[in-house]
C-alpha cells in the first residue's frame, strides 16, 4: 500500500512537472487570466497586488515562489489565512501560474503614457482599426473582436501586436477561405474544425458551418493580414492607441 502511495505520489509529481512545462503558451496565459479573474482577483486584485505583503506580479509571495510552491498554495490554500484551497480541473492551476508569471508585463512600461480618449480617436479614425476589428457593437468581422482585449492581453503584448504583428497568428484567430460548389467564396474566422467540417464566423458576422466534402476547396490562413503600424503612427500615437486598448475589458465581467 505504501509503495502504491509512493508510486502514485511520483506519478503525480511527474505529471505536475510535465504539466508545468507544457502549460505556459500564450493561450494558457490567456485562459489563466480568465481563471485568475474568476477565482483570485476578488482578493488579490486584477494586478495581483491587493493582498498586503504580496505582489504576485513582482514575485512577492507569502509562501514559496517556485511554480511547484504556487501549485501547492493554490491546491491546498494556506491554513489559518483567508487563502482557501481551490479545486481546479485539468491544468487550470498551471494556467493560473502561467498568467501570474506574466503579470509583470501588464503594466505600462516606464515612460509610456497615453490618453485613452485620444487613443480611441486614433483607433476609430486615422488607424482604421474598425475596418477589421470589432469593439462592442461597432466594426468589422475580419479580425479578432477586441471588446475584451484589455482583459486578455498585456500592454507589452498589445504594443507588439500593433507595431510588429506576428507573421503567424494564434490558432483561434486563423481564417478560413473556402470555395463553395457554386463558386461562391466564403471566408471568416475559424471557430472550430474537425475531420469532416469547419465552423466559422464569416465576414458578415454570420455563423457558418461547412462540410469539407461539400466545398470545392478550402484553405486555412495562418498568416496575419494585420498591417504593421510601425512608422504609420508616431511613438506617442502608438502609446495612446495601446492605452485605449488596455481599457477594453468587456462589460460586467
Amino acid at each position: 500500500m505504501r509503495d502504491l502511495l509512493r508510486v502514485t505520489t511520483l506519478l503525480v509529481a511527474a505529471a505536475a512537472v510535465c504539466a508545468q512545462q507544457a502549460f505556459n503558451t500564450s493561450q494558457d496565459i490567456e485562459a489563466g487570466g480568465r481563471l485568475f479573474r474568476a477565482h483570485c482577483a476578488a482578493c488579490h486584485g486584477a494586478d495581483g497586488a491587493a493582498v498586503r505583503g504580496t505582489d504576485l506580479g513582482r514575485g512577492q509571495f507569502h509562501r514559496g515562489s517556485s511554480d511547484q510552491d504556487l501549485f501547492r498554495t493554490i491546491s491546498n490554500g494556506i491554513p489559518g489565512t483567508t487563502m482557501p484551497p481551490i479545486s481546479l480541473p485539468g491544468n487550470q492551476a498551471w494556467q493560473i501560474i502561467a498568467f501570474v508569471r506574466s503579470l509583470g508585463e501588464w503594466k505600462a512600461p516606464a515612460g509610456a503614457t497615453g490618453d485613452p480618449r485620444r487613443g480611441r480617436e486614433i483607433f476609430d479614425g486615422k488607424a482604421g482599426c474598425l475596418t477589421c476589428h470589432r469593439v462592442d457593437d461597432k466594426g468589422g468581422w475580419a479580425g479578432p473582436d477586441l471588446s475584451e482585449v484589455g482583459a486578455l492581453r498585456s500592454w507589452v503584448q498589445l504594443e507588439s501586436s500593433v507595431l510588429r504583428p506576428a507573421g503567424t497568428v494564434r490558432p483561434q484567430h486563423w481564417q478560413v477561405r473556402a470555395v463553395a460548389r457554386d463558386g461562391r467564396t466564403i471566408s471568416g474566422l475559424r471557430l472550430n474544425e474537425d475531420t469532416h467540417s469547419l465552423q466559422l464566423l464569416d465576414s458578415q458576422g454570420r455563423l457558418v458551418s461547412l462540410l469539407k466534402n461539400d466545398v470545392q476547396s478550402y484553405e486555412i490562413v495562418k498568416n496575419s493580414t494585420m498591417p504593421s503600424y510601425e512608422g504609420k503612427l508616431t511613438r506617442q500615437e502608438a502609446d495612446e492607441l495601446v492605452s485605449y486598448l488596455v481599457t477594453l475589458k468587456g462589460r460586467n465581467p
Partner: peptide
C-alpha cells in the same frame, strides 16, 4: 438561422451547428 442555442446545465450556453451538432462557441458561466 441554422444555429441551435442550448443551455448545458446548469448555466453554460452552447451555440451548435443545427445540421451537424458541431459547436461554434460555448459560454461558460459558473
Amino acid at each position: 438561422d441554422g444555429v441551435m442555442y442550448l443551455t448545458q446545465p446548469p448555466n453554460d450556453v452552447v451555440a451548435l451547428d443545427a445540421r451537424t451538432g458541431r459547436p461554434f462557441w460555448i459560454y461558460e458561466y459558473r
